[in-house]
Computed example of a mutant assay.
Amino acid sequence: MSLTGLYVPLVTPFTPTDELASDALEALGHAVLDDGAAGIVALGTTGEPATLTAAERRRVVDICAGVCVQRDAQLIVGAGSNSTADSADLLADLDPRAAAALTVVPYYTRPSEDGVVEHFRRLAAVNPVPLIVYNVPYRTGRSLGADALGRLARIPNVAGFKHSVGSIDDATIAFMSTRPADCAVLAGDDLYVAPLLALGATGAILASANVATRAYADLVTTWRDGPTDQARRLNNRLLPLSQALFAEPNPAVIKAVLSAHGRIPSPHVRLPLLPASTQATTSALEAAESISFREAAAVGGSLA
């Protein structure tokens, strides 16, 4: 499969009484596709899947799948755990409308690199759709070197990576220079999207794009098609927004901004997350307003 462009990991909107806000989720899906996203990620970390019931997770996927079918867009579904057997069961039950499964490197148990490779080899062999390896060591406690990343990239039915290592480190540079041509790398760190795109990433999965989809879609497209000086300017203008949105645990600030903009019915997040502070919300709203103003003043919809 082709994994290019911007994919938005949608928040899961709740009502003020903690119910799933289905209509708001569907509207968000259509809105991000209207603003240039190539697809949607359901049940990514930003969607708070760990605090959803099984019925709520199914409903979220069904809504997102319906939007993607209507819009001829790709749906990526987060599925997997730190148990290989349980992950295989989850993937076997994946909605057939999904184009790929975003599957995290096994967390907490901290397996060896060989164990991680074997985990994905087993899952890729039985999964009905391609896998995207979610490499996020600051959440999993398991970092991977360039050799292990290369071995994962060569497993049949592994379509690519969401690469979120919190930096551009030696392993990233080595892997990006040697990865197979048919292996997609999607930037997953909002603050490091530009350098990873410059190294050859094919696209991005960015939580900040819930708030400013068109600007981040333009950023990905401009790094791909040029001019690169405009891509650098785009990135520099978006950095304050990403920093503000991640000032407190994701997705609390994002939800606060979306609620203030009237796009979701409440800023509610579920414990152990807490609602965004007033200070963080105010800073993020100011950053978002700055981006919106520049977009409105830009020629052709880019932040030139």
Rank of each mutant, 00 (worst) to 15 (best):
S87I: 06
E19D: 15
E286S: 14
A244F: 13
R71F: 05
D147L: 11
P275L: 02
Y192H: 15
L191P: 03
G150I: 06
L271A: 15
A171F: 02
G115Q: 03
T282W: 04
V61W: 01
G301N: 10
R154W: 01
I168G: 04
Q74A: 14
V129Y: 03
S81K: 07
C183M: 08
R179A: 05
R110D: 10
V11G: 00
A256W: 04
D190Y: 02
E289G: 12
A184I: 02
A27M: 05
L90S: 04
T221N: 13
P130T: 10
A276N: 10
I168K: 07
T12D: 08
L123W: 08
A125I: 07
S266M: 11
L90W: 11
D89S: 12
Q279C: 06
T84A: 14
K255G: 05
E295G: 09
R71I: 07
L131Q: 05
A73S: 12
S83Y: 11
A54F: 12
Q279M: 07
A174K: 13
S112T: 15
D169M: 12
L303Q: 11
F14W: 06
D170G: 14
S242A: 15
V60R: 00
R121F: 05
I291K: 01
F161S: 01
T15S: 10
E48D: 11
F293Y: 08
W223C: 13
E248G: 07
A54R: 15
Y216G: 05
A148F: 00
V67Y: 01
I264H: 04
F14S: 03
V220T: 01
T140F: 03
P128Y: 13
N127G: 09
L20C: 09
L102D: 02
L144C: 09
L206M: 09
I76Q: 02
T221E: 14
T140Q: 02
S81R: 08
P195I: 09
G301T: 08
V41A: 01
V129P: 04
L196R: 02
A101W: 07
V11P: 00
H261I: 04
R58K: 15
A304W: 07
